[in-house]
């Protein structure tokens, strides 16, 4: 994008699990309206980076800025209220609760600002969910659950989405749908998206820029065009 300040900036992030270091000195940025993919091998540290940026894990060192404001150490409630939403890679709906209750919970941190009207708006956007509003989320299909998880994140009208492996467990046609939705959210609604993915094909298809992570370090940053131009990606992993 232009020279405007990035909406999301991670600088020198170090994360450890107990004594074991998992992420070393990770830095990345997301500009407004961008879709940025963070790709890499199983266990490269992508999810750890994402969770630490959001506040689900505490980093050992480093800074994270959202719209210029430092957010490390803030709890997830504060981050949600600021407009950042996180969608986990699995177990991303409340299975025992009904679809509409899930949506209400998606907006919980916003308090009164998110009410019935917001839930209805999500249903308008995802009619499939509306048909199943009273159904228990555990009984939905994989794709419908993923859709619900997106709805739960969007209900608070966020500025930024952190998606952890959105394609996981989905059939190819559904993966395309999810990626297209992500692209649309960014381009038509101005959301900024940081997406961790193992499905590089699909991620690169809709992303603007790509970071590649290996063994806890981000060692490559390219535009999506540059990535797409490569013959293959095997040497990256």
């Amino acid at each position: 994008m232009s020279g405007a300040q990035p909406v999301f900036e991670v600088d020198g992030l170090k994360v450890a699990y107990g004594a074991r270091d998992a992420v070393f000195d990770a830095s990345l940025r997301v500009d407004e309206g961008e879709v940025v993919a963070l790709v890499g091998h199983n266990g490269a540290g992508k999810t750890t980076t994402l969770k630490s940026a959001f506040g689900l894990l505490a980093p050992k060192a480093g800074t994270v800025r959202f719209a210029g404001e430092h957010i490390v150490g803030h709890d997830t409630e504060a981050n949600v209220r600021k407009g950042i939403r996180f969608v986990p890679e699995d177990d991303f709906v409340f299975r025992q609760l009904a679809v509409e209750d899930n949506l209400h919970l998606g907006g919980f941190a916003m308090g009164r600002e998110v009410g019935r009207a917001s839930v209805e708006r999500v249903f308008e956007e995802f009619p499939v969910l509306a048909e199943r509003r009273k159904q228990r989320a555990g009984t939905l299909s994989g794709g419908e659950r993923r859709m619900l998880s997106m709805g739960m994140a969007l209900i608070s009208e966020p500025r930024m989405l952190l998606l952890d492996e959105p394609s996981l467990g989905l059939a190819p046609v559904l993966v395309r749908q999810v990626m297209d939705l992500t692209h649309e959210l960014a381009k038509q609604r101005g959301l900024s998206v940081l997406m961790v993915e193992q499905n590089i094909d699909q991620a690169v298809r809709v992303a603007d820029r790509v970071y590649v992570m290996r063994a806890g370090r981000i060692f490559l940053e390219e535009t999506a065009d540059q990535m797409r131009a490569r013959d293959d990606w095997w040497d990256l992993f």
Partner: peptide
């Protein structure tokens, strides 16, 4: 791609 097993149960 990783293959995931059943989702964790919480009960």
């Amino acid at each position: 791609m990783r293959v995931r097993g059943a989702y964790r149960q919480h009960s």
